[in-house]
Structure formats: C-alpha cells, structure tokens
Amino acid sequence: MSEQIYNQQLELAKLIERHTGRDGVHATAIPSLSFTRQSNVTGPTYGVHDPSLCIVVQGEKEVLLARERFRYGPADYLVASIDLPVTGQVIEASSDVPYLALKLEFTPSQVLEVLSDSEIGAGPKKNAKRAMFVSRMELSLLDAVIRLARLLENPKDIPVLAPLFTKEIIYRVLQGQHGVALAQIAIEGSGTYRIREVIQYIMKNYDKSFRIEELAEIANMSISSLHRHFKEVTAMSPIQFQKQLRLQEARRLLLSESTDAADVAFRVGYESPSQFSREYSRMFGFPPREDIKRLKSKYDQRINA
C-alpha cells in the first residue's frame, strides 16, 4: 500500500469515527452513504447485499456468497453489482483499533449514465460476470471517496457535489480491474442484465413457487443458458437463491414477531414445516426456536452490558 493511500485512509478513518462514535451502522446526510463501526469481531450476519461499493479503512471483513469467500481490508474494495443474499462477518476488530467501513449504494441507471458519458467499453454482451468482486484499492478511487465523505463537514454542498463525486467514484470502479462486471448490469441485452431481471422477479415473488421455464422466458434464454448465466452471476442456482431469501426473511419474522416456526414456514413459501426446520438448521446452524432464543439472549446481554 502506498504512503498516499495510507494517509488518505487515516483521514477517512477519522471522518468515520467523527460521524459514528459508537458501534453499529450509521446513515449519513448523504442518502446513499453509510458508515459502520465495530469494536469486536462479529459472528455471521445474513442479509441481501444491495448494489454498492464497500471500503474498509480499519480491520477486515469476509463476505460469503454461496460457497465463495470474499475477504477484504484497507488494501481492497468490494463491489456488489446486483442484489445478492450473503453472509458477512467482521474478522478483524478491537476496541483499540475498531473496524471502520463505508458503503456507497448506486443504481444501474447511475452506472449507465457514466458509461454513456465516457468511452469505457462494457465488454461482450453475452458473457455474464460474477456480480461481486474484490479489487485492489487505487489512489484515484480513494481520492474521490474522501471528497464525498468530506461533504459531511459542509452539508450545504451535498445536494450539488455528492452526485458529481458519486459519478466519479462509479467511473473509477468501471476503469478498474473488474469494471466490466459492473458495466454489464446496465447494458440492456447483456447476460448479466437479463439475469438481473430474473433476480428482481425472484425477490418480488420469493414466497411463491416458480417453474424454471418462467424464469428462462423472463431472461429470454434457454433453460440451460439461464442456469449457466445465473450461476455465473450469483454463484448459486435460482432455487438456491430463492431458498436463501426465504430463510433470511423467516429469521427476520421470527425475531421481530411473536409467532411459531410452522406459521413462518408457510408465510415464506414452505409447504412442509419439517423441511423448513431442516433447511433453517443447515443455513443458520440451529433449529428455528433454538436459534431465535440464542439471538435474543445475545441481544439482551449487549443491551445490559
């Protein structure tokens, strides 16, 4: 890591500390930008990773997409170009040197705007790319990110300058090692673009059964081509993708509502409570009732600490 990058990350760390102050995820005055502070290594957390750029300035994080691991720290950045169900874990953090990170969300239309205004090629339309990647941090990207974060010190500048700096950040990522993977989410007709439409359909209808022929029709692909492209983009099959969405939503419902596992199983689309319990245990390591009891106990301990 160059001395310039190191110095800029120190400045960014101070900015994040100033606008967080305590552990957790913190929204900022820039709607698409959030900061995270964590003073301990965490257990796995489950959720849908929306399209965004993630930068760690202190500590280290690991993200699991199906069985594929993405590990990144201050020398790297991570990009998700499509909504993806993932498992995340802070693997390096302490009270003296807390984990500090930022997340900048973006949309395919923002990516398309940058592509339209530049001469960056999107690559072959047919070759779908993995919708998550880790790249080495570059000074030009970090410089744009810092200028965006500095706007929090001068909020009156945010409406005018935040969109410009965000556009520059997307441009820098598109110029990077895996820029083609980001570009393809915005290019109509690309394999990634068509798989994005299938993902949107599954996310809206995760609790309903579907025929693979329906998904192939949405993507305008053969069934075999759909399977191949979907797995290339998401590292899983459409059925596995839907299952992760169902189980994540089931866990959220069990945590937030006083309801039993069988009722939740039916609400998220399972026809068999016993199958739901088996698959829940396989994903989260514990049967539903035991898992929720364990999570609530951990939460109570944090609140009373």
Rank of each mutant, 00 (worst) to 15 (best):
K293I: 02
Y299E: 15
D96Q: 10
Q301I: 09
R246G: 01
S116D: 08
Q58K: 07
V145W: 03
G121C: 04
A235G: 02
I195W: 15
L253S: 12
K231F: 02
G191W: 09
P287F: 00
K167R: 10
P98W: 03
G24Q: 04
E213F: 02
R267W: 00
R267D: 03
L142R: 07
T192F: 04
K129L: 08
P85I: 07
R251A: 05
K129M: 13
A66Q: 10
A13T: 13
C54N: 15
G59L: 09
K103H: 14
F284T: 01
M283P: 01
L64G: 01
L142G: 02
F276K: 07
K156Y: 04
K243V: 10
S190K: 04
I16P: 03
G285K: 14
K293V: 03
Q244G: 08
L295Y: 05
S277H: 04
L12Y: 00
I292Y: 08
I195A: 14
M203I: 13
Q301A: 05
N127R: 07
L15T: 00
A261D: 06
L148N: 12
A80S: 13
K103I: 03
Q177F: 11
V233Q: 04
A216P: 04
S297C: 02
I202Y: 09
Y99A: 11
R302I: 04
I199Y: 04
A219P: 08
S277K: 12
S274Y: 08
A235T: 02
R294D: 01
V198N: 05
K204Y: 01
I187C: 03
H178C: 11
G189E: 11
A183P: 07
I303G: 00
R302Y: 12
F230C: 07
H227I: 05
H26V: 01
E213H: 09
I146W: 02
I218H: 03
E138I: 15
L112C: 02
D207A: 15
L151A: 11
Q244T: 05
R37K: 13
P85M: 12
S34T: 13
K61G: 05
K293C: 02
L100N: 04
A29L: 15
G176L: 07
A29H: 13
Y99M: 12
